[in-house]
Design a protein around this nucleic acid. Structure first.
Length: 605
DNA sequence: GCCGTCACG
DNA sequence: ACGTACGTGACGGCA
């Protein structure tokens, strides 16, 4: 087993302490190189770069310190001089840039005024594509997996020090230069594997270009009306207080409503209500259970109201005003490109992909997400993208016809499973059919459908049988997905993204069933993720080429939110439609619904 | 730090 | 006989 990467073994690392020696290093780097920025802390908006490491094919590792604290301050290159010299490399578009989590380093450099040009090779994203099931793609973990090398963590080097600026230059060099060297070595290895796995295009044409798009989306941020959110918090507090009093009265005692344990005692012991399903730790008090209990007592309904309002207050109206960046006056999320097993993005700190929309309070919260004065918000969402992808992947004639003729797919499904003509389909039948269509995408089972619709399992089974009778293509798709997963161990999207499904060979029947559902769902969800990523890149490029000020400010899986100056807004709609609907060539047309308004609630309308 | 719960697609 | 809808992230409670 290889324990030390060739870099460390061959050359050790060098600290670059003068402008002259930096020039020598820069001249020696004539092609692709890896780099890493060392930062005082861990936040791209408040922290600053204290040093930059470089590594190239000569298997050298260099560290250029410029922000370390006393007593070493005199042993460094001035930051401006260092960055200025380095710009020769960074701004050279014909030299590719290699790194681990490049979005972070590129963002740090952008804040220092540096524009990094050239092809990107991000080893974190390479690791993610090779196995999106991994819980971590940190440089530590990836180096260990692919190079069998145990690398010190940032935390270990930091120790008790408050900032990386306090770390001695000697120690910083060993750590930082190694990071760059590891990234260089990993790139050579992982990119070969990416090619072997047939994911070169996915990597180079989708994930790498997306880095720059996400940087701009994160930097743009979303304006929120903090006064309005604050007022809503006060209003919610009064509402919650009133519900709380009714709950204590109905329960005959005071208790912590937010504690599932205490609530469970009140419901199932004090009041003697009949418990439904269980959790690992006791009886469940989740929404489905409380809805059933509401038939026999007044308390569960009050708990449901309390829970939903409490959620909105604690997660959104209380918190969002404090997340406004003082410099920009806006909220900036982080988009995570290496988290989900299917290829979707995720959003965190804060999560702007789960902002409420349902109900009166959901609408009011979205009304607090607003456009800058002189601009409008545009919401553009793919209509039924997952069903369209199912149509495409399954080649099911019925589904394809439905999307080509423009008839409502849910109504069509309803007419099939209820054996009535399209004209005879009621709202109730359509609602049921919609759930069936969703169910198919999730890897339907009679039990799951019966739970979702609150109907007997036998009825659910009839609907499912009826569905597959009319959709032989979908049946075939499912069989092929299961066969792929069992034989190859993974399933793929339309663009070659892979998801290993080890669950499918589990000896545990539940886990195995889960694996089957994953095999069915992942290609659909993952292809949708591929498509919107392609659209984001195309739209971003188009906006730049036309030198427009309109910005993409959010992605929510099948929706893009843009902020557009009012004088651009008119012509922008057609550009959005063109880039999103035309992002990929598919067996069914893609349809995008576009709305606009002063706030996100209006724009979605 | 895990659990249950629930916000979104 | 069993018990599951797919994918996330954040919060409060509790050990």
């Amino acid at each position: 087993m290889k324990l030390i990467p060739s870099v460390a073994r061959k050359n050790g690392y060098e600290t670059v302490l003068s402008l002259d020696s930096l020039q020598d290093v820069l001249l020696s780097i004539r092609s692709d190189f890896a780099f890493d920025t060392e930062v005082s802390g861990r936040h791209p908006f408040v922290d600053t770069i204290v040093g930059i490491s470089l590594s190239n094919e000569e298997n050298k590792g260099y560290y250029i310190p410029f922000g370390h604290a006393a007593p070493e301050t005199q042993n460094q290159i001035k930051k401006d001089a260092a960055l200025n010299a380095l710009s020769i490399l960074f701004e050279n578009g014909s030299i590719a840039k290699i790194g681990h989590n490049l979005k972070y380093d590129l963002m740090m450099l952008r804040h220092e005024g540096m524009t990094v040009k050239g092809t990107l090779y991000d080893t974190m994203l390479a690791s993610y594509l090779l196995n999106p099931n991994k819980p971590s793609h940190s440089l530590q973990d990836v180096s260990f997996e692919h190079l069998s090398y145990r690398k010190r963590t940032f935390q270990e080097v930091l120790g008790k020090r408050a900032s990386f600026a306090e770390v001695s230059i000697e120690e910083a060099t060993a750590y930082a230069a190694e990071d760059a060297a590891l990234a260089f070595e990993l790139k050579e290895l992982l990119f070969e594997k990416i090619k072997d796995e047939g994911m070169e295009k996915l990597y180079l044409d989708i994930e790498m270009p997306l880095i720059r798009v996400l940087m701009d989306v994160e930097e743009a941020g979303f304006k929120v009306d903090d006064i309005r959110l604050h007022d809503m918090s006060k209003e919610l507090a009064r509402e919650l207080d009133a519900i709380q009093r009714r709950i204590y009265f109905l329960a005959g005692e005071e208790f912590n409503i937010n504690s599932p344990k205490q609530l469970s005692r009140v419901l199932f012991h004090t009041l003697g209500l009949k418990p439904g399903k269980k959790t690992k730790t006791g009886f469940s008090t989740e929404v489905g259970v409380l809805e059933d209990l509401a038939e026999s007592h007044d308390l569960p309904k009050e708990i449901l109201d309390y829970r939903s309002l409490s959620k909105l207050k604690s997660t959104y109206t209380d918190v969002l005003p404090y997340l406004i960046n003082p410099q920009t006056g806006r909220i900036h999320t982080s988009f995570n490109q290496t988290v989900t097993a299917t290829g979707r993005l995720s959003s965190s700190d804060p999560n702007l992909q789960n902002i409420p929309i349902r109900g009166e309070w959901g609408r009011r919260i979205r009304e607090a997400f607003i456009a800058e004065d002189g601009s409008v918000l545009i919401s553009a969402d793919y209509s039924q993208i997952e069903l369209r992808i199912l149509a495409c992947l399954s080649n099911d004639q019925g589904l394809i016809d439905a999307f080509f003729s423009g008839i409502d797919v849910h109504t069509r499904t309803a007419s099939e499973i209820f054996s009535v003509s399209m004209e005879m389909v009621t709202q109730e039948m359509r609602r049921t059919a919609k759930t069936v269509n969703f169910g198919v995408i999730y890897g339907i089972s009679p039990f799951g459908l019966s739970e979702a619709l609150n109907i007997p399992k036998e009825d659910a089974k009839k609907y499912i049988d009826g569905y597959f009778q009319g959709h032989p293509g979908v049946k075939t798709y499912i069989e092929r997905a299961l066969k792929d997963a069992r034989q190859r161990g993974y399933v793929t999207t339309l663009f070659g993204r892979k998801r290993p499904v080890p669950e499918i060979t589990s000896s545990n029947a539940n886990t195995r069933s889960l694996g089957e559902r994953l095999a069915i769902n992942s290609p659909i969800q993952g292809t949708a993720a591929d498509i919107i990523k392609i659209a984001m890149i195309a739209l971003w490029k188009s906006l730049r080429e036309e030198k427009l000020k309109t910005r993409i400010i959010l992605q929510v899986h099948d929706e893009l939110v843009l902020e557009s100056p009012t004088d651009e807004f008119k012509k922008i709609t057609e550009m959005i439609r063109k880039e999103m609907e035309g992002a990929v060539d598919m067996a069914v047309p893609l349809q995008v619904e576009i709305g606009h308004g002063r706030n996100w609630a209006e724009a979605h309308g």
